[in-house]
Design a protein around this nucleic acid. Structure first.
Length: 207
DNA sequence: AGCACGATGCTCT
DNA sequence: GAGCATCGTGCTT
């Protein structure tokens, strides 16, 4: 498996301090990095969803600030990690100006570095093609809630990665918002890279 | 290849 | 006490 030796600098806070859908779009192709016991685990972000403000009835901030969602109301560039369904952690990146609750849910990565370690953590099951699986593969849990992704020495951060064009991307409704009223239930704020595009890039990586 | 369901524990109308 | 921004299994086409 490819082990890139050149690493990009961590994305700056200004990257996250933008309109949430723009951030979600720019995050496709970026590299999510987790430092686990001084080892790099990383992958290219290939699926993400935008959750935008108190008016968005699919967003955790819809009923205002609570202990759980407080991080979303804080400064951009921080991790909002929460627990759901009694067993899964979800990783979000806080966006927009401080005081405005918005975030991007990271739903899937294409694993690049530390693949063997991820496989071990995942017990050889599908690696990181879902928000809960991604967290398990990268050893992300509640201890990283509020983690500053832009601070030097961060254990979790995001680097510039590869570029995808609009033709490489599909938009659709966000997943799992079953009881959420329209238009929020179906608004196309889920972005993902087309599987065939992913396969192409994978082949390029093997020459 | 797709749907139904159970697991499991935290959060807060 | 109800409802989850899910996942894996096991069963049906």
């Amino acid at each position: 498996m490819t082990q890139p030796t050149r690493h990009s600098p961590s994305l700056p806070r200004a990257f996250f301090a933008r309109e949430t859908r723009q951030v979600a779009r720019s995050l496709l192709g970026a590299r999510l990095v987790r430092i686990d016991r001084s080892r790099r685990l990383s992958g290219i972000i290939v699926e993400a969803e935008a959750y935008i403000g108190e008016a968005d009835l699919g967003c955790h901030a819809r009923h205002g600030r609570t202990p759980r969602n407080a991080v979303m109301f804080g400064a951009p560039g921080h991790a909002y990690v929460y627990f759901t369904y009694g067993m899964h952690w979800m990783l979000n990146v806080v966006t927009e100006a401080e005081g405005r609750p918005a975030a991007v849910l990271l739903r899937a990565i294409w694993p690049v570095e530390g693949v063997a370690a991820m496989q071990r953590r995942r017990d050889r099951k599908p690696l990181a093609d879902g928000p809960g699986k991604l967290c398990q593969a990268l050893a992300v849990d509640g201890r990283l809630n509020g983690h500053d992704l832009c601070r030097p020495g961060a254990r979790l951060f995001i680097e510039k990665g590869m570029a995808f064009t609009e033709a490489d991307i599909v938009r659709g409704p966000r997943v799992g918002l079953n009881a959420v009223p329209e238009p929020w239930k179906s608004i196309p704020w889920r972005l993902r890279v087309l599987p065939e595009v992913l396969r192409e890039r994978l082949d390029e990586g093997h020459h």
